[in-house]
């Protein structure tokens, strides 16, 4: 067992864990933050995307212990003071989700994309940047619309 401490959604957390604990397991099982999902074993579907130190990472392909000292944001930490994050709002407004399983990873990826590439995103860029997130329900059409709208809305946020 090894000790790990990190800040998750603004709260300091510490635990003793088996070194083989993945970040996603730590979030889901230790912290009961079950909004982060596991959809594959090969680091491709992106349902598990969270932010570590402000950057999107696949929490199924990251050891929890390697995030010692890091700041982690999950889907549960995106809304503040009861107000949805603009990207969350955009997914709802543009019907960017159906079963909802890939959605947390999509939203976390989208927020990271805007953080890196700005608020005006063309369709081609959005589609390329979603390469690591698989959705089986929406055919991506409304996800692309949601991300573009969410990116614009984020310009007026914060």
């Amino acid at each position: 067992m090894v000790s790990v401490s990190m800040t998750v959604n603004g709260k300091a957390v510490s635990a003793k864990i088996d070194p083989r604990t993945l970040l996603v397991q730590f979030l889901r099982e230790n912290l009961l933050l079950t909004g982060t999902h596991v959809g594959c074993d090969t680091s491709q579907c992106g349902a598990c995307v969270v932010h570590v130190d402000g950057l999107a990472v696949k929490s199924c392909t990251t050891l929890a212990v390697a995030c010692d000292g890091s700041t982690v944001t999950t889907i549960e930490g995106l809304a503040h003071d009861g107000a949805l994050h603009p990207m969350q709002e955009a997914f709802r407004e543009h019907h960017g989700l159906q079963c909802g399983f890939c959605t947390p990873g999509m939203i976390m990826t989208a927020v990271d994309l805007v953080n890196r590439k700005g608020h005006t995103l063309d369709e081609h860029t959005i589609r390329e940047e979603l390469e690591g997130n698989i959705c089986r329900c929406t055919g991506y059409h409304n996800i692309v619309k949601s991300v573009a709208a969410g990116a614009q809305a984020m310009a007026g946020h914060k």
Partner: peptide, 21 residues
């Protein structure tokens, strides 16, 4: 109509089988 169920999904509060313990 915008979906009533979406709030829980976009906030990570959906309850899928593996989320139940």
């Amino acid at each position: 109509v915008r979906r009533k169920e979406d709030f829980r999904f976009i906030t990570g509060k959906g309850q899928y089988t593996d989320d139940i313990n």
